[in-house]
């Protein structure tokens, strides 16, 4: 089986498996974020649970970080390998005649998402790790805020119109990435995705609804506080 993952098809499968994991994670992420629109208290409770539960913090979180790093590192490695396989470029190439922009530019939409993840880590993850594991404050509270601090922090982050703008642009790239990536992952796993209209429609729905949901949440908090 180790030989399988060294083959070109094995690497496609590895990309697809990490993509499935990340797409599942996006579902969990948006579910929790949507709670912030409906109930401040529930959002705080869920955030505190996710931020302090040892199984999530020391089990799921490292797996997630590995999944993200694995997906983009393998993606870039395969892109470089593919460019090497091409050799001399065409003087004239009409890519639009037979394929979508999204499918041809996964590396660029992926790079935009990666840039967003870096920003997102600086915004939320690093301060969180600093508070909990460097300062050692696991209470989930802060001065001047009644109850947990998570909702307050969220509100504060989305006050900045430039940050909201960057998030919205990143989610557009996420949609473009998913519009090809969703069905591509299934195809890599051996599913004849081209014949399955239901799967294609599910892919389109997922690729548009999830990023739109994130955009809605960012705009909601920007304009409501």
């Amino acid at each position: 089986m180790s030989g399988f993952f060294k083959s070109s098809i094995g690497r496609k499968v590895a990309m697809a498996l990490s993509a499935f994991f990340l797409m599942f994670f996006l579902l969990i992420h948006i579910t929790i974020n949507l709670i912030s629109v409906f109930s401040e208290d529930t959002f705080n409770t869920v955030s505190h649970f996710m931020g302090t539960n040892p199984l999530i913090q020391f089990g799921m979180q490292p797996v997630l970080i590995f999944g993200v790093v694995f997906h983009f590192v393998l993606g870039f490695v395969l892109e470089l390998k593919n460019r090497k396989a091409v050799g001399v470029s065409y003087a004239r190439n009409n890519g639009g005649a037979n394929s979508t922009w999204m499918s041809r530019n996964m590396v660029y939409s992926g790079a935009a998402i990666l840039a967003f993840i870096v920003l997102h880590f600086i915004d939320f993850w690093i301060p969180e790790i600093n508070t909990k594991y460097i300062i050692g404050d696991m209470s989930g509270t802060m001065e001047g805020v009644e109850g947990f601090r998570y909702y307050e922090e969220l509100k504060h982050k989305f006050e900045d119109p430039f940050r909201v703008g960057a998030y919205v642009i990143a989610f557009v790239f996420l949609a473009l990435h998913l519009l090809h990536g969703f069905t591509s992952a299934f195809q890599s796993m051996g599913v004849t995705a081209g014949r399955k209209k239901g799967l294609q429609n599910l892919g389109k729905a997922y690729s548009i609804i999830i990023p739109l949901g994130f955009i809605f949440i960012a705009l909601y908090h920007h304009f409501n506080h």
Binding site: G95, N98, S99, S184, Q187, G194
Partner: peptide, 10 residues
């Protein structure tokens, strides 16, 4: 030395 398929469909 062929490249990897990325399911573009071209």
């Amino acid at each position: 030395g062929f490249g990897n398929c990325t399911n573009i469909g071209a």
